[in-house]
Amino acid sequence: MPSLPDMTTPNLTALAGQALTESGHVAVPAPDAGQPEFVEFLQRMGDNALILGHRVSEWCGHSPALEEDIALANQALDLIGQCQLWLGLAAEVEGKGRDADALAYLRDAGAFRNLLLVELPNGDFGVTLMRQFLFDAFHIEMLRALKTSSDSRVADIAAKAEKEVAYHLERSADLVIRLGDGTDESRARMQAALTKLWSYTGEMFVDDAVDQAMADAGIAPLPSSLQPAWDKTVAAVLEEATLTAPTGAWQHKGGKKGIHTEHLGYILAEMQFLQRAYPGARW
């Protein structure tokens, strides 16, 4: 019998390395590997969470009040945690030996599939909150629908994320109301934010071939089917906030297909710097 390793003194360095490997998805090709639409859809979910999470994290240490700073940092953390789950699954389904980190840090802007809305600059606090509210109201409907996905891995992630996003929506809706129905200054800023962001909301509900394939497979809802619920939430909150949404605004789109605003490249330059400059670096 070979001699046993010392069982009372764990090798913490080795354990740490092992824990790092095990905390992410292991790159084992899934039986359904090679479903390009499914991978595409999972990247959309993961990239929305990653890019918005990164944007929101930019407030850390800069928010107007300590409580806001903490709240934004916590939401960023939730979103980045959700991103790890979505991109981990995307990598698994893709089956090319990549993992969530490789997808986050080693893709160029054209390979990102997030909505344009989430990559827009933070602007003032009003723009940040309004962007969060418009996205949260969409995000919660998407997650609720995904809880009944035909793919149990998708349903599991959605059930987990939905509980977190319920808190995000509660907070962003409360603050849109408080600041919209607030002082002249806060109201003017919230209205300006709404007017600026409105033309980036249409993209959330545009169905394309990927969405159709997902709906046919029972994996995900058609985005257009989420719009009535979103309209209802947004209308109720805006009314209470005494804010008016623009009508007939031109709607930008392209993010879901990898056609982005100039802002995404700058986010990636900062977010990916370390892995690009020092490939494979870990700590």
Partner: peptide, 22 residues
């Protein structure tokens, strides 16, 4: 995990492993 992005998750795994190895 408690929350998807809870930074304690990897530490928890490490602690479980260290305790059980001990």
């Amino acid at each position: 995990p408690t929350y998807s992005g809870c930074p304690a998750t990897s530490v928890i795994n490490l602690d479980i492993e260290a305790a059980l190895r001990a």
